[in-house]
């Protein structure tokens, strides 16, 4: 059963732009991405939007729907009131390209700054043995579909452009945690560089990243806080300080 839906879609580019009202048909069971596509096919042929899988697997269709960062393909139209106007804007933490498409290159730059996985030197392919319980923690973080909704929501950069250079963001804190917890990774200084180079200390654990993660990765509880605790181990731990162990652990 088709009904009419009122939308406000942000249209424009880096020079200017604003919210445009449109009315479009919507059918039972449709998600926001469906109605955007209908707008595109019937009213605004050049409306820019990113998407790929339409099943919440690729993380392309990130945008803000009624002010909340979400995946358009996983947001049911039925989750809003029937006569509510739905406002759709691009991600607001990143530079705008056009309409609903933002420039997310910041994230790819940060990805290149995280030191890669380093396997043991003498391990031959096929010989690795890892227990399921040892890989599970890192596997949770590897569920990340790189939608960058967490990056977009994090107030450290959303509200402070100048912090972008010194802050890797939650997506990459889980990457660091993943490697630090990887049973075979041998690179030693991940904790220290997390704090000193990637801006772990900038995070004030206000958990917005966790709130928006469509993969339900417990970013703050399972990655950021454990990493902060690991940093405490090597930098601020009372027992270790008194035991003078701090010096020895510096290399970690």
């Amino acid at each position: 059963m088709a009904r009419k839906l009122n939308l406000r879609i942000w249209r424009g580019d880096s020079t200017d732009g604003g919210l445009k009202d449109v009315q479009v048909d919507v059918n039972e069971g449709e998600v926001v991405l469906d109605v955007i596509h209908r707008v595109q096919a019937t009213q605004m042929g050049d409306l820019a939007v990113r998407w790929n899988c339409k099943a919440g697997k690729c993380g392309s269709c990130s945008m803000e729907i009624n002010g909340k960062p979400r995946l358009a393909c996983m947001t049911q139209v039925a989750s809003f009131d029937e006569n509510e106007t739905i406002t759709i804007t691009p991600l607001r933490a990143f530079p705008i390209i056009k309409d609903l498409v933002a420039d997310v290159s910041f994230n790819y730059k940060k990805a290149m700054e995280i030191p890669a996985y380093e396997p043991p030197k003498n391990l031959a392919p096929g010989e690795a043995r890892m227990e399921q319980i040892d890989v599970e923690r890192s596997q949770e973080f590897r569920k990340c579909i790189e939608c960058f909704l967490c990056q977009n929501t994090c107030h450290v950069i959303r509200d402070h452009e100048e912090n972008k250079k010194s802050f890797a963001g939650p997506r990459f804190f889980i990457r660091i945690a993943e490697l630090d917890m990887h049973p075979l990774d041998i690179l030693k200084n991940r904790k220290r560089t997390a704090q000193e180079e990637h801006g772990l200390g900038m995070c004030n654990i206000t958990k917005c990243c966790t709130e928006v993660c469509p993969e339900h990765i417990r970013i703050t509880d399972n990655a950021i806080i454990p990493m902060k605790e690991r940093v405490v181990d090597i930098k601020y731990d009372p027992a270790r300080m008194f035991a003078g162990l701090l010096k020895r652990e510096k290399r970690n």
Binding site: P125, Q132, V135
Partner: peptide
Amino acid sequence: WELEMWGALFDRTKEG
């Protein structure tokens, strides 16, 4: 196996 050397984390059997 090569992917595993690059950091992939497949599900494991009991023997690891």
